[in-house]
């Protein structure tokens, strides 16, 4: 299956199996996009059904949202640098940038958990209104993906430390990189169509 190795290509593309895995992951991301689309659709329908509970302007704190946005965007950038270092066969640089990426991701997650606690203290829970149900499901699904991504990337780092850079570990690193960038792409739309939209009207 991995008979032909084309060493002129970056490590993660050198075998047919690895190329197919990367293609397969892009197809998976296509399905993830549709999953998030359903949640955006629900939120778009229900976003003004407050049921007498708090509205967007009562609970959203723009400063915290901006910090979350910059943290996640920067982590997407540092993940790009990690993959760049991987292509230079710089294992130490790769791992360093991966750790920085995860630290920024953890910072984002910390902010988001605090945000949810802050909402709950203001009486804004999943049970309060259709607006808040759809909001928590959308944000929670994204946050769960970030959490999963941190665990996944940690395991990839452990493999890199144990096995070094091989076509297989390079492919695994490249795929978690794609996943991480994807989480930031979803966040752009949450930032725009949840937070900014809520604070405009």
């Amino acid at each position: 299956m991995s008979a032909k190795v084309d060493t002129s290509l970056p490590l993660e593309y050198q075998t047919e199996q690895d190329r197919m895995n990367i293609l397969g992951f892009w197809v998976f991301l296509g399905a993830e996009i549709v999953l998030f689309a359903t949640l955006f659709g629900v939120y778009g329908v229900l976003y003004e059904r407050f049921a007498g509970g708090p509205t967007h302007k009562d609970i959203f704190v723009i400063k915290d949202v901006m910090i979350q946005t910059v943290l996640l965007l920067t982590s997407s950038f540092t993940m790009g640098i990690a993959i760049f270092e991987m292509r230079r066969h710089n294992l130490k640089g790769l791992i360093t940038w991966l750790v920085i990426t995860l630290a920024l991701g953890a910072g984002f997650l910390f902010m988001e958990i605090n945000e949810f606690i802050h909402y709950a203290h203001e009486g804004a829970t999943m049970q309060t209104s259709a607006f808040l149900s759809s909001l928590f499901v959308l944000l929670g699904t994204h946050g769960a993906h970030v959490t999963l991504g941190i665990g996944w990337a940690t395991m990839v780092i452990i493999q890199l430390l144990k096995r070094g850079l091989t076509p297989t570990t390079a492919r695994k690193t490249f795929i978690i990189g794609l996943y991480w960038h994807f989480l930031d792409v979803v966040w752009i739309f949450i930032f725009t169509f949840v937070y900014l939209k809520g604070l405009v009207a």
Binding site: V27, V34, A37, F40, G41, V45
Partner: peptide, 18 residues
């Protein structure tokens, strides 16, 4: 092509639902 199709699905689902 996969991403273009995904974007098409997003428009159908989000705009269609709303």
């Amino acid at each position: 092509i996969n991403m273009i199709y995904a974007v098409f699905m997003v428009i159908v689902i989000v705009v269609g639902s709303i």
